[in-house]
C-alpha cells in the first residue's frame, strides 16, 4: 500500500482554510503542500512549498496517468526535499517559472492547460534538471507496487504457484 504522506494531524477543514489552490495542488504554507481535498499532505523542510508543488505537477505532466492519484507522484519526488538538492531544485523551478512568465502566465503552476505546461517542459527537456526528474520517475513512480494494479500488472506470482492454474493461457478473444 502507498504510504500516507501526512505526518501531522491536519483536518480537511484546516487545509481548506489555509490553502491557496495552485493548479491541482495546494500550497498551504506552514511548510506543507497538500491536495485540495486533503487526500494527502507533505511537509517540506528544505525546499519551498511552491517548489515541491511544482515538482509534483511536473511529474504528472511528464508521465501523466489520469487514473494514478497525486499521492504517488508526491512519493516519487519527495526525495528532492533535501539540503543537497535544494539549489538544484530552486534553479530548475525558477527557470520553469521564468519560461511560464515569458508565455504570459504567473508561474508553471498557474499555467492551466497541460499542453501549455508541456510546451514549457519541451523547452527544458535536455537540461540536467528535467532529465534528473524524468529519470528518477522511471523507478520512483513505476516501481511503486501500489500503482501496479491500476495498470493490471499482477507483480510476483511465485507465492501463488505461478499462473499454471491461474490463467496463463486464458485469452478468449482470438
Amino acid at each position: 500500500m502507498a504510504e500516507r504522506i501526512s505526518n501531522r494531524n491536519l483536518t480537511r477543514r484546516q487545509l481548506l482554510q489555509s490553502s491557496v489552490a495552485a493548479g491541482g495542488i495546494a500550497v498551504i504554507g506552514m511548510g506543507f503542500v497538500a491536495a485540495p481535498d486533503a487526500a494527502w499532505a507533505l511537509e517540506v523542510t528544505e525546499i519551498t512549498e511552491h517548489q515541491m508543488a511544482t515538482l509534483v505537477q511536473m511529474a504528472r505532466d511528464i508521465y501523466p496517468h489520469d487514473r494514478v492519484a497525486d499521492e504517488y507522484y508526491v512519493i516519487a519526488v519527495k526525495g528532492y526535499d533535501s539540503a543537497d538538492k535544494k539549489a538544484f531544485v530552486a534553479q530548475g523551478v525558477a527557470r520553469l517559472d521564468e519560461l511560464a512568465q515569458a508565455a504570459g502566465n504567473a508561474s508553471y503552476l498557474e499555467t492551466k492547460w497541460e499542453e501549455n505546461r508541456v510546451a514549457l517542459l519541451r523547452q527544458i527537456e535536455n537540461d540536467a534538471f528535467f532529465q534528473a526528474v524524468r529519470g528518477g520517475l522511471i523507478t520512483g513512480l513505476y516501481n511503486q507496487k501500489a500503482i501496479w494494479p491500476i495498470f493490471g500488472y499482477e507483480g510476483e506470482s511465485f507465492s501463488k504457484g505461478g499462473y499454471i492454474h491461474r490463467g496463463f493461457d486464458d485469452i478468449n478473444w482470438l
Binding site: 501523466p64 522511471i138 513505476y142 500488472y153
Partner: peptide, 27 residues
C-alpha cells in the same frame, strides 16, 4: 516485461502522453 521494466525499456527517454497512454494499455 513487467510494468517497471516496460517503463524503462519501451522507449527510453520518452515522456508525455504518447508514452504514458502506451503504458495505460499495458494489460
Amino acid at each position: 516485461l513487467g510494468l517497471p521494466f516496460m517503463a524503462a525499456f519501451l522507449n527510453p527517454g520518452a515522456w508525455g502522453r504518447s508514452f504514458t497512454t502506451a503504458l495505460d494499455a499495458y494489460e
